[in-house]
Design a protein around this nucleic acid. Structure first.
Length: 360
DNA sequence: CATATACCTGAGAC
DNA sequence: AGTCTCAGGTATA
């Protein structure tokens, strides 16, 4: 039978607790089917499995079929596709300190909802047949607009690391923030402020398994706190600056190199033409964009050449194009796509991915 | 500038 | 079981 899913707000409530005489949280009643409201975004403009679990954020959890839950600032929100209505996106606000419309507003901002994916992809497809082919199979992959500090810390954790451990580390840091409740067994927290982050020591992070990234986090937190006016404001101020300045500024922080800087710029600082060039994108680029460089090693200089090539080809929103091409190259997606030579993709024995990046 | 190497950890592949 | 390699990099020499 199909039942609407239920949620509990208090952390760690036993399976069937007798209802307390006076519930601590009266915001939501317990064990009531969630109320879902339409988000006014068709599946073609937002397809959750291609947007939330594909490496932009590690803080959203799958809490049901085509359903994901995460924090947007202080708001705890679930999103899901409706089986009917062409798979349109619906939302449920589990908890918000203000009101529904404020949460909704924050959510639309988080989703960059003012950007029309249809327009973008039509442009990309016009300038690149391969993009057109890929896009036909993978519609609705958006670039998010995350909170800068939250985005930065997540990608500090990502260096030379795998998805499973990154997620674990991000979960650990997140627990420093204000708890927002639990959904389907996952505990959610507001991302900790700079002040909260400053309470944890490098040694504590190392003991928690962060390895050498422990000092990246404490070092960056310290550097941000030293900024006049506060680090969060400093980060936010980067949104109005040019990409080169943004990248250079971010790279002054310990643990932030070109790749992490580009991720933060693209996924949180409105730098829609930032191109995070990692080993993966390097493969894509030398295959499709700069075949001459195939076989070369990725140096900082070549890194910016790749970025330039993407921008030349796709323009002001090149980062959005790059994001889709990146997703298309994920092992979890390749099986859904026709391969270049037209054959059905079978896993190559040579290079195995041990980490499943996303599965659905 | 380009190249090489260390850096933490833990999950797979031999 | 004990190695080895690799994972969406960065900081140094």
């Amino acid at each position: 039978m199909k039942r609407a899913r239920t949620t509990t707000i208090s952390p760690k409530s036993p399976p069937h607790p007798p209802p307390p005489p006076t519930p601590p949280q009266k915001l939501h009643s317990r064990r009531v089917p969630l109320q879902w409201a339409p988000l006014n975004l068709p599946q073609s403009e937002l397809y959750l499995p291609l947007t939330l679990p594909t490496g932009q954020t590690f803080r959203w959890k799958q809490t049901g079929p085509l359903q994901y839950t995460g924090a947007v600032g202080p708001h705890l929100i679930s999103l899901k596709h409706h089986h009917d209505h062409d798979g349109a996106v619906y939302y449920h606000i589990h908890r918000t300190p203000s009101d529904e419309s404020a949460a909704m507003c924050a959510l639309l901002d988080f989703l960059n909802s003012h950007v029309s994916l249809a327009d973008l992809w039509s442009d990309f497809s016009a300038s690149d047949p391969r993009f057109a082919e890929v896009a036909r199979h993978l519609t609705g992959a958006r670039v998010l607009r995350q909170h800068p500090l939250e985005c930065l810390v997540q990608f500090l954790c990502s260096s030379n690391n795998n998805i499973a451990r990154i997620t674990k580390m991000v979960d650990h840091v997140s627990r420093l923030g204000h708890p927002l409740g639990s959904v389907e067994g996952f505990d959610f927290h507001q991302f900790p402020s700079l002040e909260r982050l400053a309470l944890v020591t490098e040694q504590q992070l190392r003991e928690a398994g962060f390895g050498y990234r422990a000092k990246y986090i404490t070092g960056t937190v310290d550097a941000l706190r030293a900024k006049p006016g506060g680090g969060e404001e400093w980060l936010a101020s980067l949104r109005k600056l040019d990409l080169e300045v943004v990248i250079d500024s971010l790279c002054t922080l310990p643990g932030v190199g070109p790749k992490v800087a580009a991720c933060v710029a693209l996924f949180s600082l409105d730098q829609h033409h930032a191109i995070p060039v990692d080993t993966h994108v390097w493969q894509i680029a030398t295959r499709d964009l700069l075949p001459d460089l195939a076989g070369a090693r990725l140096t900082p200089k070549l890194c910016s050449r790749v970025a330039d090539a993407f921008v030349s080809k796709y323009g002001q929103y090149a980062g959005w194009a790059q994001t889709l091409l990146f997703i298309a190259d994920l092992p979890s997606q390749k099986s859904l796509l026709p391969s270049r030579d037209g054959n059905i993709k079978k896993n190559k024995p040579g290079k195995k991915k041990t980490t499943q990046i996303a599965s659905w």
